[in-house]
C-alpha cells in the first residue's frame, strides 16, 4: 500500500529494482528506435525525464480535485502539453537533433511508462514523493537508454558521443545501428541484469 512517507526506496525503485526498461519493459518503442547513438539516447532520456517529472508533479498536485471518471483524459492532456513543450524546445535547441529523433519526441505521449506512473503512483501520493519517484524512474529510463545507445554507437560506428575511438580502419558493425541491433543489445543487457539478479538471490539464499 502506498503511504505518504518518503524513503530511499521511493527514489531507487525506478533506478534499479523496478527499472522501467530492464525490469518493467515499458516504453520499448523509443528504447529500440532512437538508441543508435549516445547523444540521441541521452536527448530522448532527458526529454522523457522532463515530461515524467512535470506531469507527475502536476498530477499529484491536482489529484484530489480531478473526478475519477475523467482522470485518464486529464492525465493525457497534461502529458501531451509537456510533450509539445519539449517538442518545441528541442527544435529550438537543435534542428539536427530534432530530425534525428524524428517522430519519437511526439510519441513520448504514448509512452506507457508516463501514463502508468501518473495513474498508479503520482495520483496517489503527495507532490514531493511523486516528484522523487518520477526522478528515479526518469533517471532509470535515461540510464537504460544510455546503456543501449553507448554500446550500439561503439560497435556500430566506432565512436562514443561522436568521438572516434578506434581509428579510421575500425570495422563498423552496421547491424548495430539498424533496428535489429536494438533488439540484440537490449537482449544482451536483459541477460546481464537477469544473471546479476539471479546470482544475488542465490547468494542471499545461501547466506540465510
Amino acid at each position: 500500500m502506498l503511504d505518504d512517507k518518503i524513503t530511499s526506496h521511493t527514489f531507487w525503485e525506478g533506478v534499479w529494482e523496478n527499472n522501467p526498461v530492464f525490469v518493467m519493459l515499458l516504453g520499448m518503442c523509443p528504447v529500440l528506435a532512437v538508441t543508435n547513438s549516445t547523444i540521441n539516447a541521452l536527448a530522448m532520456g532527458l526529454a522523457t525525464l522532463f515530461v515524467l517529472l512535470s506531469s507527475s508533479l502536476l498530477v499529484s498536485l491536482i489529484r484530489n480535485w480531478i473526478p475519477k471518471q475523467t482522470r485518464i483524459a486529464v492525465f493525457i492532456i497534461i502529458i501531451a502539453t509537456f510533450v509539445t513543450v519539449v517538442d518545441y524546445v528541442i527544435q529550438a535547441i537543435s534542428l539536427d537533433l530534432y530530425n534525428a529523433l524524428g517522430a519519437f519526441i511526439q510519441l513520448i505521449v504514448a509512452n506507457c511508462m508516463i501514463l502508468g506512473r501518473a495513474e498508479a503512483y503520482a495520483s496517489k501520493v503527495p507532490p514531493a514523493k511523486a516528484l522523487i519517484n518520477a526522478l528515479g524512474m526518469g533517471l532509470g529510463f535515461t540510464i537504460a537508454l544510455l546503456c543501449l545507445g553507448s554500446v550500439r554507437e561503439i560497435l556500430g560506428s566506432g565512436t562514443l558521443l561522436g568521438f572516434d575511438l578506434f581509428g579510421e580502419n575500425y570495422q563498423q558493425w552496421i547491424v548495430m545501428i539498424l533496428p535489429p541491433g536494438g533488439f540484440f543489445v537490449l537482449g544482451g543487457w536483459l541477460l546481464l541484469f537477469e544473471w546479476l539478479r539471479e546470482r544475488k538471490e542465490q547468494q542471499e539464499a545461501t547466506s540465510e
Binding site: 480535485w65 480531478i66 475523467t70 483524459a73 486529464v74 492532456i77 509539445t84 513543450v85
Partner: peptide, 16 residues
Amino acid sequence: SLTLVSVLSGMAVVMV
C-alpha cells in the same frame, strides 16, 4: 475540470 485543464494546457502550449 476537463475544460479548465484543457484551457490551461492550451495556454501553456501557445506561450511556449
